[in-house]
């Protein structure tokens, strides 16, 4: 790799608050200001801007162009958008910096899931010929995966409850898991529906060292996808995560922290297995997607949280993971490191 690229700043909304009274840009703007303030940069100083969002969430066509109002895109800026989680926007920005086209990048993403029914909205990303006409919602598909894991002996309902309780910062025996949503998944196994936004600033080489006391260097990043037909896949495993992790160099040395984008408790079981994480690794100190799952931002939040741990000196080598599609169909893995202390 010819250029070193780092995450130098991260900001996110307090996802536990509702944002009913705010438009998407009104929700996003404070996060953009916060992330720029951390670096002292202004929009005009940023070499490349990339965002991730999905119009189907709030049912607003071209909402990403309105969100640009919060960036201040005049005079015209170099800008791009992915209709995906912001983690993939970060990947695009990383390639831009790697190619030397820019020295700094602003990456942001946002999602307002509360105006619609996100369980149903997500059916529209499925195979339109054989699957989408049946309207299998996102919880149903995750439940099929969870049952496959239980059948394989990889987990059981108490173990899933423990994942959920740990993510939400409560003791397993005290946290009510709630009723079945789609059996075997209970309320506690499913992500809360929230609105939220996240942003990071990337910088290359010496620019990163100027902007951040301890940059979180991206040592490797890769993303891989599996077949779209659920019945073709082994739902108890995630070969795409493992391959992305290999290509990102995750297995070269152990990590101390892993931020996993597992919207359902059962998916953490799959990811731990695929990534060979042992009990010595801190998994989701942020609470992960079970604590807050702003759709389209939750993956970028994982990278941001992993980086923030390095910025603060709590972590030296961290793995960040983002997912997209049903049952962990597509997966991105990044490995971040701080300079030796």
């Amino acid at each position: 790799m010819t250029r070193e690229i780092a995450v130098v700043a991260f900001a996110r909304t307090d996802h536990r608050r509702g944002a009913d009274e705010l438009s998407e840009v009104e929700m996003l703007m404070p996060v953009l200001h916060e992330v720029l303030d951390r670096t002292g940069l202004k929009t005009a100083d940023i070499g490349f801007t990339c965002s991730g969002s999905c119009d189907y969430l709030a049912g607003r066509a071209f909402s990403f162009t309105l969100a640009l109002d919060g960036v201040g895109a005049w005079p015209p800026i170099s800008e791009s958008h992915v209709e995906m989680d912001g983690a993939w926007a970060l990947y695009e920005a990383w390639t831009k910096l790697l190619a030397g086209d820019a020295d700094t990048a602003l990456v942001y993403s946002y999602g307002k899931s509360t105006p619609g029914s996100v369980r149903d909205v997500l059916t529209r990303q499925l195979d339109p010929y054989y699957v989408a006409p049946l309207w299998p919602d996102s919880v149903a598909l995750a439940a099929l995966q969870a049952q496959a894991l239980i059948d394989a002996g990889d987990t059981d309902e108490p173990a899933l409850a423990a994942v959920a309780a740990r993510s939400r910062g409560s003791r397993a025996d005290a946290a009510p898991q709630g009723d079945y949503v789609v059996r075997p998944l209970r309320t506690g196994d499913c992500p809360p529906v929230v609105d939220g936004a996240a942003a990071v600033v990337l910088a290359a080489g010496d620019r990163a060292r100027e902007l951040c006391e301890r940059p979180a260097w991206i040592r490797g990043i890769d993303h891989r996808i599996e077949a779209h037909a659920l019945g073709v896949r082994d739902l108890t495993d995630s070969p795409s995560t493992r391959l992305a992790a290999e290509r990102a160099g995750a297995f070269r040395r152990p990590v101390d922290t892993a931020e996993l984008h597992a919207p359902f408790s059962s998916q953490e079981v799959v990811l731990r297995k695929a990534l060979r994480l042992d009990d010595g690794v801190r998994v989701n100190p942020s609470g992960g997607a079970l604590a807050a799952n702003p759709v389209m931002a939750a993956g970028l939040v994982r990278i941001g949280e992993a980086a923030a741990g390095i910025h603060r000196g709590r972590s030296d080598r961290a793995l960040a993971h983002a997912t997209s599609g049903p049952c962990l169909q597509q997966n991105l893995v990044a490995v971040l490191e701080g300079d030796p202390r």
Partner: peptide, 22 residues
Amino acid sequence: TWAWNHAPRRGQPLDTPFAWAL
């Protein structure tokens, strides 16, 4: 594999409780 859907949603194949199944 299967999952029990006690509350069918609009557009789904049955309007009484059913199992999703592969």
